[in-house]
């Protein structure tokens, strides 16, 4: 007969747990290392199109606050007349990347917020007033199946490229509204029938069912939908700026596209795109924390509504 000491077993369990944790970190670093390595190799193979990771970061930090290239572009476009003189009184948009990036971020977030409010109002409102769904669903599903990019030219024609706020925010709002409408409807449809029936037999009125069943119950899926919508919004928002708006991260990409300086352009564009990728990851991370809090009630697997 063998005897096993309980303490030994517990110590082993603890060791195993530590081992799993360190393995997780190992794989994580390995993944990031491979990613950066592949990027580095690509930059060696295609130096014209790929900057090295360090090169991209360097370009970004060099141009963040003051950028020779933006100055030159605006001077060329006669938008920064002071540049020719002393260099004092330079309008902020001529100085560096930072303001452009902030403008884009602001516009995209405003658009996403507005669209979410509208989409949720329509989607959740249609639960209380089914007529809203009858009016909204056919229209939304027609526009929803079309690739969203085709809506961008409309906004460019109607609101012009001078008033960036209306164009970018308008497009993002339109896109987010459609998505959030569908996500909120689907979230409500996925609430089990039994739960609704139970609420009804407990005397639930449409109003109380909306407040205490639909509103909290749809949070995981709506939150998941919002993450998807926002992830798409970054690309769309930057792209609509590429179409000709004179401010924002998309403008910077467009500026480099027309080749203000041919040596640095791949570094510039890749750096800008990566910046938006990192920004999207950070915003998504903040969202995840918020969503985790809102969905404390759910089983851990369902918390993020995936």
């Amino acid at each position: 007969m063998t005897t096993t000491d309980v303490l030994d077993v517990r110590a082993k369990a603890r060791r195993d747990k530590r081992k799993r944790q360190s393995l997780f970190i190992l794989y994580l670093t390995l993944g990031i290392a491979i990613f950066l390595g592949v990027w580095q190799v690509l930059s060696v193979w295609f130096p014209l199109y790929f900057p090295s990771p360090l090169g991209a970061v360097r370009h970004f930090t060099d141009n963040l606050m003051t950028s020779e290239w933006t100055r030159r572009w605006f001077a060329h476009a006669n938008a920064c007349p002071a540049l020719i003189g002393s260099g004092a009184d330079i309008p902020p948009y001529c100085s560096g990347y930072v303001l452009h990036l902030l403008v884009t971020t602001r516009n995209i977030l405003i658009g996403a917020a507005l669209g979410t409010i509208l989409g949720l109002a329509a989607g959740l409102g249609s639960l209380v007033f089914p007529k809203i769904a009858e009016v909204f669903t056919p229209v939304a599903s027609f526009f929803g199946t079309a690739p969203i990019f085709i809506a961008a030219p409309f906004f460019v024609i109607w609101f012009g490229v001078d008033v960036a706020l209306l164009t970018t925010v308008g497009l993002i709002t339109f896109y987010t509204t459609l998505l959030m409408y569908f996500f909120s409807r689907r979230a409500a449809e996925n609430i089990p029938v039994g739960i609704i029936e139970s609420a009804l037999t407990l005397g639930g009125t449409p109003r109380s069912i909306f407040r205490w069943v639909y509103m909290p119950g749809t949070v995981p899926e709506i939150a998941g939908g919002f993450r998807i919508a926002l992830a798409g919004a970054w690309g769309l928002g930057v792209l609509v700026e590429v179409l000709g708006i004179q401010r924002g991260g998309g403008f910077l990409i467009a500026m480099w596209r027309f080749g203000v300086g041919l040596v640095e352009w791949p570094a510039a564009v890749v750096a800008l795109i990566t910046f938006f990728g990192v920004l999207a990851v950070i915003v998504d991370g903040i969202l995840v924390v918020g969503i985790r809090f809102l969905t404390r009630w759910a089983e851990s697997g369902r918390r993020l509504g995936l």
Partner: peptide, 29 residues
């Protein structure tokens, strides 16, 4: 599982990159 854990982070990062904005780069590269 090893491949899955290793590629998880880079793949999710790639997914978050706004690819639509990369079109001007694509045209030249």
């Amino acid at each position: 599982p090893i491949l899955r854990q290793t590629s998880w982070t880079p793949m999710n990062f790639l997914r978050m990159i706004p690819l639509l904005a990369a079109i001007p780069w694509m045209q030249v590269a």
